[in-house]
Design a protein around this nucleic acid. Sequence first.
DNA 1: CCGTTTCTAGCACGGGTGTGCTAGCTTCGC
DNA 2: GCGAAGCTAGCACACCCGTGCTAGAAACGG
Lengths: 192, 192
Amino acid sequence: MDAEARRREIAEAVWRVVRRDGVPGASVRAVAREAGTSMGSLRHWFATQDDLLVFAMTLVQERARARVLAVVSAAGPDTTRGLRALEEVLPLDDERRAETEVWLALTARALVDPRLAALRDGSAEDLLALCALVLREPGALRPGLDPALEAERLYAVLDGLALHAATRPAALPADRAREVLAAHLGSLRDTR
Amino acid sequence: MDAEARRREIAEAVWRVVRRDGVPGASVRAVAREAGTSMGSLRHWFATQDDLLVFAMTLVQERARARVLAVVSAAGPDTTRGLRALEEVLPLDDERRAETEVWLALTARALVDPRLAALRDGSAEDLLALCALVLREPGALRPGLDPALEAERLYAVLDGLALHAATRPAALPADRAREVLAAHLGSLRDTR
DNA sequence: CCGTTTCTAGCACGGGTGTGCTAGCTTCGC
DNA sequence: GCGAAGCTAGCACACCCGTGCTAGAAACGG
């Protein structure tokens, strides 16, 4: 088996454990058990537990990034393209919900883990840039609005919705989150 | 010493530890050391570690709630009162930054801890209600806007800004967060 | 076929964990 | 003064933790 694929398999086991038992439950032993292998084998692929968590978070970000890029780089102009790109980081289905939960757990841990903090900062910059990019689409931003401030505000809406939809899905169902995001973009659009 | 005061003292020790070392660092021993007491004594006030965390989070919420209420219930009409009330839950100074960090850490843990989840849900409802209340002030919401949706959107902006200001203070300084929040409320206001 | 590399399994160590428990100290009410 | 209640200190237990290490299996190149 390809080495990278093996590492990805293990990282996915990390996600499952983190979703079930949180980051504290993601011990080396638990991950090995979840991945159906032994501690020794796992340690061959990841030297330390920290490497494991860092890789798991990297993978979450790469997957989200790939989905966003696929939407953004779709050919042809499309007024809903920005919305659809941003929706890729909302927990609208099970896959994205898992990603958001892992992201939240690791974001909290990043408060005391420098390596995770660096990862988090990188993805935050990416997302802020994405927001700015979406607002640069023709007609997306009504004249008179401050692009930098609106990017920051859109980013806040995006992460706020992701947070609420992930932590309290009953109070903010997927469709509702999408609706609020669409309304936000609509309120910025040039309506002439 | 008053019993409740003693419990509060210990809870504040929990905050200090959580801020320094994260929730994983908040072991019974570490908290006892931080509070300048012994494990046995600490266990007299809190039977289990879970009780400790639950009480610490309850206290965070109560403090924020008290601050918000103080602003909201201030006498006389005031167009900036809503803004100032919402600002009370943003990490704009050290005290509120500490609260936000603890809130974030415990929100993440609430994904796998039912008692903390219940607390989180309660405070989320409070905050959503606060957003709705702020938007009900005369002139706060331009005719034609959907109050429920706007409350949800405002709540997302609020938590998104809190999250970003707490995790990446360099990228989103306190003043900037306040500015974005003010701009959001401004964009909803009746400008006639 | 054999040597080498890659990978797996599992043990052992030192240390930290939450919690149960008891013995002693302090602080009251009377 | 004295008993009782409230409080503190600290030990002990069983458990889980990350990691270092070694022995062996498997895969592969020649």
